[in-house]
Amino acid sequence: MADRSLSPALRPFDAVGGWTISAVDSLGRFGTFFVEALIAIATPPFKVRAFVDRINYIGYRSLLIILLTGAFTGMVLGLQVYLTLVRFGSEAFLGPAVALSLIRELGPVLAALMVTGRAGSALTAEIGIMRITEQIDALTVMALNPMRYLVAPSILAGLVTFPLMTAIFDVVGIFGGYLVGVELLGLSPGTYFGEMQTFVDMKDIMTGFWKSVSFGVVVTWVCTYKGFNVGHGAEGVARATTQAVVLSSVLILVWDYFMGSILP
């Protein structure tokens, strides 16, 4: 907030300075939180039960939405890419076009966005409610580190489940494209899968894999951080949940661009 004792000419600078300090402070807290989470991950004993529970929470419970969005993304791709390629007489390349789009780009990004919407928001809300109902304080005063019980298992589960969800999204999407391209539009199955084997190689799969791994870390980091640092009451939880989903989604797209630039 601008200091009213300052002259009007200096107030904009005061406001910009205040905002900058606040932004740097928030970034510092965000980074410190991640370092604390890494320390909690590296410190034994490993919380196997909490980790399995988080895999179920983030991964298994997101399966239906991944199957649905994967199938329809593949079907839309199959239809639109076919209609484009047929103009150039290149419809034989439908298989690799669908597969490369999904494996390199759409699979990791859309799967991450879907899991963020379903599990990331729930993660923030759950931890936020634990914060406002003093359950996190209860852990702390029992001399138990809440980072180890709540954050570390979530980040590890994100590392495991995001690539798995992406793989499922890719496979279902490729079959969605097959359904439209082969079953509805009459392309031969051999052409669809044969050209795919020719054009898709391991480095494309690894690009999608590394993207999904990094999205898993980013989403669980943002969502647990927002839950941990929730404001007061139900409104605070609602705001934190919205911020977590928006920030995660923006970071997925920004990070996707950087990963796409770096990876082969």
Binding site: M130, Q135, A138, V141, A143
Partner: peptide, 20 residues
């Protein structure tokens, strides 16, 4: 060091703070 002191404590929070 702080955890060592906290191990001697029990705390009953206002809302109970039970893990739901």
């Amino acid at each position: 060091a702080l955890d060592g002191i906290r191990r001697r404590y029990g705390v009953v929070f206002q809302g109970g703070a039970l893990f739901d």
